[in-house]
Simulated assay, not measured.
Amino acid sequence: MIYGAMKFSIGGSLKLAFRPWVEGLENVPAEGPAILASNHLSFSDSFFLPAVLDRKVTFIAKAEYFTSPGVKGRLTAAFFKGVGQLPVDRSGARGAGEAAIKAGIDVIESGGLFGIYPEGTRSPDGRLYRGKPGGLARVALATGAPVIPVAMIDTEKIQPPGKVVPKLMRPGIRIGKPLDFSRYHGMEGDRFILRSVTDEVMYEIMKLSGQEYVDIYATAAKRQIADAEKAEKAARAEAEKAEKAKKAQRPAA
């Protein structure tokens, strides 16, 4: 009930304002379980994809979105519940991963669509990063559900990280053909199989999105970018300090 009302209001508003284009809708089954594995460019990805589908898509979200105090906290919790997101405690990396996997399996076993971002976090620069094998592959192999690769197009231009007000432009969504990994069913404990499954899905996402692929995790790339910015800031500060010292040594005119 709540989801239907939120989808009608939010999904309708998004489609009216941004007019997203979509290819491959026929690849999403009208019923039955499936995993939607998407690249992750923007916070808004979790809203644009459900907006163009007739079925509910369940993503996972930080538990903090559901537990913040006050009126704003309650409104935020109601919003995320309404758009079909499940809370996951991310206080511990391992615990968060296991909770996400359990949530995904529960959604699949109930016959639903489970949405997941194999990169684990948003791309820091618009490129496609290495998929993490712990979530997507384990849910797929534990349940036998088909994996449908999805490419979000240009959503990072609509709402770049740190920007609150989105830019009005048309994003795109390409949905690929379902991938069948039932031959590996029950082998979710084999890390080599998990890696192989994840890489195959990421390759299909790359073909759909046209993104440059980077064979490192996005979290590592973010650390590299942060370290580079920190080093650049320190270098500028040192240069300014040296310039001030140089000016202080010049004789007065």
Rank of each mutant, 00 (worst) to 15 (best):
P160H: 08
T143L: 09
S13G: 12
Y217H: 14
K177L: 11
P87D: 03
G111T: 03
E119C: 03
F192D: 15
T198V: 10
S182T: 14
G131N: 06
E26M: 05
G24S: 07
A77I: 06
K81Q: 13
P160D: 13
K233E: 15
Y129L: 04
F192I: 12
R138Y: 10
D54Y: 11
A51F: 00
E98D: 13
A137I: 08
R19P: 04
V88Y: 05
G210I: 10
I35T: 02
R127Y: 04
S44R: 05
R191S: 07
H40Q: 07
G115S: 00
P251F: 09
F59G: 00
F80A: 01
S46Y: 02
E23D: 13
D45R: 01
V83Y: 00
R191P: 02
G24A: 07
K102N: 10
S13P: 05
T155W: 08
L25V: 05
V139D: 01
E238C: 10
A242Q: 14
A51L: 01
Q85F: 04
R55Q: 10
G32L: 08
A103C: 09
S38L: 04
S68P: 07
T121G: 09
M169V: 09
Q211R: 14
A30P: 03
G104A: 05
D54G: 15
G82W: 00
R74P: 05
V88N: 02
A221Q: 10
G24L: 10
D215I: 02
A137R: 02
S209Y: 06
L86H: 04
G12N: 03
A99R: 10
M1E: 13
G111P: 06
A151H: 02
P251E: 09
N39L: 08
T67V: 13
K62A: 12
G70T: 03
D215W: 02
G189E: 12
T143W: 04
L25F: 06
Q249I: 09
V197C: 05
A34I: 06
I10V: 15
G73M: 06
T67S: 14
R127E: 02
I158K: 00
D215Y: 06
K222N: 09
R195I: 08
A145C: 02
L25M: 08
Y129S: 01
I175T: 09
S182D: 08
R19D: 08
H40D: 03
S91M: 12
A237S: 11
S196D: 13
S123K: 01
L168D: 04
Q159Y: 08
N27K: 12
N39T: 05
E200R: 15
Q85D: 04
L25C: 06
A151M: 04
K163L: 11
I116N: 03
E119L: 06
Y184M: 10
V214G: 01
Y3F: 12
T155K: 09
I205M: 03
M1H: 14
P33C: 04
L49A: 07
H185M: 15
T76A: 11
A93N: 06
A51D: 00
